[in-house]
Amino acid sequence: MMTPPSKPWILGLTGGIGSGKSAAAEHFAALGIHVVDADHAARWVVELGRPALASIAEHFGAQVLQADGQLNRGALRHLIFTDPEQRRWLEALLHPLIREEIANNLAQAKSPYAILVSPLLIESGQYTTTQRVLVIDAPQALQMQRTLVRDNTTEQQVQAILKAQASREDRLRHADDVLVNDKDLKALQTEVERLHHFYLTLRGGQP
């Protein structure tokens, strides 16, 4: 009798802004690994026709909708940044839905392990749903430089985002593996491949 394949274990992948976590995730995906992005899940739960969008519109009014009925993220962001009470209301609505979206998506994985990519893996407590944590780390000056180039943003804005994300020490404290991404893309991909081969030898994310 054939034994059914064991369920994929979950690797949490995180890193600060401009650390290269998206590039790392893309390479894992290219190697055939099922990747779920928490940011995408957060966008899906508020798409047109989803119950969450109706609740948001009911609570905040038409000002948070665009003319076509889609969510006006800028307007919503402005409302919740100026009012912590409203931000908590929104988080209470969305966090369980995002968790469910992520879980459903991870459950579809057919690869030996699956990856949950989340910039807030540590802060949101999402790491508790994973069996292992990989942190993509980069020197802060390099994070800053990459983000300024990529997002066409100001240094102050990047500083603000760095402050809001878990401190580097906090992230590293939760890490089972750390990939220092301070060279070029080729070097990052080589490291991802090395980790991938190591992960294939693990059962349930542990050696």
Rank of each mutant, 00 (worst) to 15 (best):
L71N: 07
D176Y: 05
A23C: 13
T3D: 04
L121M: 10
I56Y: 03
V117G: 10
V117C: 10
L185N: 02
R43E: 05
H27I: 01
V180Q: 08
P84Y: 01
H78D: 15
Q126L: 15
L76N: 02
R171V: 08
Y127T: 00
L94I: 07
L162V: 13
I136W: 01
I98W: 10
Y199E: 08
I33M: 08
E100D: 14
D177Y: 12
P112I: 12
H95V: 10
Q70A: 15
V35A: 13
K21V: 12
P119V: 11
E101Y: 08
G61L: 06
D39K: 06
I17F: 08
D137C: 02
A141V: 04
L120D: 00
S6I: 12
L188V: 04
I122V: 14
A29Y: 02
H95W: 11
V180I: 15
Q126T: 01
E100F: 05
P5F: 02
A52L: 13
E85S: 11
R132Y: 05
Q131K: 10
Q140P: 07
A175Q: 06
H27F: 15
R87W: 01
T128I: 05
H197I: 03
R194K: 14
A42L: 10
Y113L: 05
P51S: 12
G20D: 09
E123C: 02
A62I: 01
T190V: 13
T82W: 00
G61Q: 06
A54M: 04
A107Y: 10
P84I: 03
W44A: 14
R73S: 06
A160T: 14
I122C: 03
R171E: 11
V117D: 15
P112N: 11
H40R: 13
A30G: 09
V35Q: 08
R168D: 11
L202Q: 15
E47P: 00
R168G: 07
P207S: 14
L142I: 11
L116E: 09
R77P: 00
A109C: 09
F81E: 13
H197E: 14
L76I: 03
A62Y: 00
L179T: 02
A67M: 02
V35S: 12
V117Y: 09
P5S: 13
Q70L: 02
A42N: 07
W44I: 08
E26A: 15
H27M: 04
A166I: 06
L31D: 06
D37W: 08
L76E: 02
H78P: 00
Q156F: 00
Q165K: 10
P96A: 13
L11G: 02
V135D: 04
V178W: 07
D39P: 07
L202E: 10
V45E: 05
R43H: 15
R88S: 11
W89S: 05
F28T: 01
P8D: 09
V46H: 03
